[in-house]
């Protein structure tokens, strides 16, 4: 920095006019840490105050309870909420149901995504590939609620599903699994496609030239290279299903998932501590899942 001429009173001059800068600006130029802390302070303050504090408070609230008479929050430490979760059959059933739906959705999505991603990455022409990527990406951004609503319409009495003669499963868990698989399919296709794109064609050709039949190439060369992509897609669909409770409201009939219990307890039942405790279940499930996957080493390549 060659700036030596002090120019305090003037507005910042156009860059071409020579080495002039305000003292504040010169100070900032010299002090990297000052620039960095000015940049970071506002966004970090927001994220920490709004989000980190809220998450910490959620954990603390789950250890409080609600006075049954005054329905005020009683701020003494207790594990009662978690005892309720373990002992009460309703919570166990809903947890098992939520995990079951999330597993079913994940398996279905991976099974559908694999051939599509393979076609996109290895069979389609580059032009068609670009079009297909856009075709997969666009519905990602179409309103989530509208997509669920559209399945309510399709599966309704006298709706499209009945008209085609396939019949509608009606509103229930099957409809929830169909709708959620539909919602999260693009999130599973994209990482698998990205992983496949990185598999060099020459590798497949070499295996073919050496006499490996197609099924063997898929099993011993493509699949091992695909594992990180599949794991990433599976984590997306599993986590998104665990966190969603609107779908089951709209197409699930009378069924409930964990999110519904959180919502009811935060709202109508006015028991924030219990709602906070229930919200810990998806967090713990996701943490256990991620730790288990990390053990296998599949996360390192995402």
């Amino acid at each position: 920095m060659t700036s030596t001429v002090p120019d305090t009173d003037q507005a910042p001059a156009p860059a071409l006019r020579g080495p002039v800068a305000r003292p504040g600006s010169r100070l900032l130029h010299r002090m990297v840490w000052l620039r960095l802390s000015l940049l970071l302070s506002a966004p970090l303050a927001w994220m920490v105050l709004v989000y980190v504090v809220a998450l910490a408070a959620l954990l603390i609230t789950s250890l409080w309870s609600v006075d049954s008479l005054s329905s005020e929050i009683d701020r003494t430490w207790t594990l009662d909420n978690f005892r309720t979760l373990i002992e009460n059959e309703v919570y166990r059933n809903v947890t098992v149901r939520t995990i079951g739906v999330a597993l079913a959705v994940t398996v279905i999505d991976v099974a559908i995504a694999l051939p599509i991603a393979f076609y996109m990455a290895k069979v389609a022409t580059p032009r068609a590939r670009r079009m297909l990527v856009v075709a997969v990406l666009t519905p990602l951004w179409a309103s989530y609620l509208v997509k669920v609503f559209s399945w309510r319409v399709v599966l309704s009495e006298g709706g499209l599903a009945e008209w085609t003669g396939l019949g509608s499963p009606g509103y229930g868990l099957t409809a929830v699994v169909i709708t959620q698989s539909y919602l999260w399919l693009p999130y599973v296709i994209l990482p698998i496609f990205a992983a496949l794109e990185r598999v060099p064609d020459s590798l497949l050709e070499a295996a073919g030239d050496l006499g490996a039949p197609g099924s063997m190439v898929l099993r011993s060369i493509v699949m091992p290279l695909l594992v990180p992509g599949i794991v990433a897609g599976a984590i997306f669909s599993f986590s998104l299903t665990m966190g969603d409770y609107i779908t089951v409201n709209i197409v699930g009939g009378a069924n409930q998932m964990l999110g519904n219990l959180v919502f009811v307890n935060a709202g109508a039942a006015n028991n924030l501590p219990l709602a906070a405790a229930i919200a810990m279940i998806p967090i713990v499930v996701m943490l256990v899942l991620l730790t288990a996957i990390r053990r296998t080493g599949a996360l390192e390549n995402i």
Partner: peptide
Amino acid sequence: LPGVVTGIA
């Protein structure tokens, strides 16, 4: 994080 967690937090 699952939407429900962010919401209730």
